[in-house]
Simulated assay, not measured.
Amino acid sequence: MARNWNLRLIRPREAVTLAVNKAWTEALKDLARWIETDLARAMTYGGLGLQGIADTAFYKFVISPEGLSQLGIEKTEPPKLLQAYERTIKVSRSNRLVKIRFGDLALLKLATPHPASGTGHLQIESWLEWVVDKEKVKSGYVPRSRVPKPLQKNIRVQSAPGGLMLPKGRFGSKGLWRFPPQLADFEKKWLRANVAKIEKLLQQQAITFLSKRLS
């Protein structure tokens, strides 16, 4: 004999709200993990439609022969900055909100010690101090092309691919150097280029994760 069943939701709005809120909490956990992995890497190295720190004019200068020579570092040093950027991303969340911190300056400095720090030749610990703290050097940069050819065989010149930091007057040295100011504000330029794209990515991923949790 056929039976008819009548079902009635008790307080349906509250039941649906509870289910959605639970799914949203789980979706935020998914979003936080995605930020710490996929988004952090894209913000650092590029991808997902973003300009990475590695794509900035600042970083391209740092890894150039001129940049390496002016900073007095080997080509193995700049990648440490990128690795630090990827590690410094921090995500905090509540039931309805996700906060992102990226590029903690203190941690970035710790990750980029200058090879000559502690030798008595420098007043800085991190080469990044020349960039963000606008520290000056009482030597001028002389491109390698202006150094007499006989001296270019000197081992010190060979270890500086772009040129040398020399006292004032030496081969045209101005006797004073600071990091190019037009490149020093790279983080502000990077943020302006990416902020709207990052917000859109976060919205899209949040919706994607919520949909999966509700399915």
Rank of each mutant, 00 (worst) to 15 (best):
residue 64 S to K: 05
residue 194 N to S: 02
residue 1 M to S: 14
residue 155 I to V: 12
residue 4 N to I: 13
residue 78 P to Q: 10
residue 15 A to G: 06
residue 54 A to W: 03
residue 157 V to T: 09
residue 41 R to S: 15
residue 187 E to K: 11
residue 31 L to I: 02
residue 66 E to W: 07
residue 18 L to N: 12
residue 84 A to N: 05
residue 143 P to R: 01
residue 28 L to K: 00
residue 77 E to C: 14
residue 185 D to G: 07
residue 17 T to V: 13
residue 10 I to L: 14
residue 93 R to V: 06
residue 14 E to F: 04
residue 47 G to V: 02
residue 64 S to G: 03
residue 116 A to E: 14
residue 29 K to A: 03
residue 160 A to G: 07
residue 174 K to L: 12
residue 85 Y to Q: 02
residue 52 G to Y: 08
residue 183 L to H: 09
residue 155 I to F: 07
residue 130 W to D: 02
residue 132 V to D: 05
residue 43 M to S: 10
residue 21 N to Y: 05
residue 195 V to F: 09
residue 177 W to Q: 04
residue 215 S to I: 12
residue 130 W to F: 15
residue 117 S to D: 11
residue 178 R to M: 14
residue 149 K to R: 14
residue 109 K to E: 12
residue 151 L to P: 03
residue 12 P to M: 05
residue 207 I to V: 14
residue 35 I to F: 03
residue 72 G to I: 03
residue 179 F to H: 00
residue 52 G to A: 12
residue 121 H to T: 13
residue 59 Y to Q: 03
residue 84 A to E: 04
residue 107 L to W: 10
residue 169 G to D: 08
residue 201 L to E: 02
residue 89 I to H: 00
residue 117 S to T: 06
residue 103 G to N: 05
residue 133 D to Q: 11
residue 204 Q to S: 14
residue 64 S to T: 04
residue 111 A to Q: 01
residue 163 G to N: 04
residue 198 I to H: 01
residue 134 K to H: 12
residue 203 Q to D: 12
residue 31 L to G: 00
residue 20 V to F: 06
residue 48 L to Y: 01
residue 150 P to F: 05
residue 212 K to D: 10
residue 5 W to T: 11
residue 171 F to A: 06
residue 104 D to F: 04
residue 108 L to D: 08
residue 165 M to Q: 09
residue 8 R to T: 11
residue 69 S to E: 09
residue 95 N to K: 15
residue 3 R to A: 11
residue 200 K to F: 08
residue 39 L to E: 03
residue 61 F to V: 01
residue 102 F to D: 00
residue 124 I to T: 12
residue 176 L to K: 11
residue 143 P to M: 06
residue 164 L to R: 08
residue 161 P to C: 07
residue 202 L to W: 00
residue 33 R to D: 13
residue 138 K to M: 07
residue 11 R to F: 05
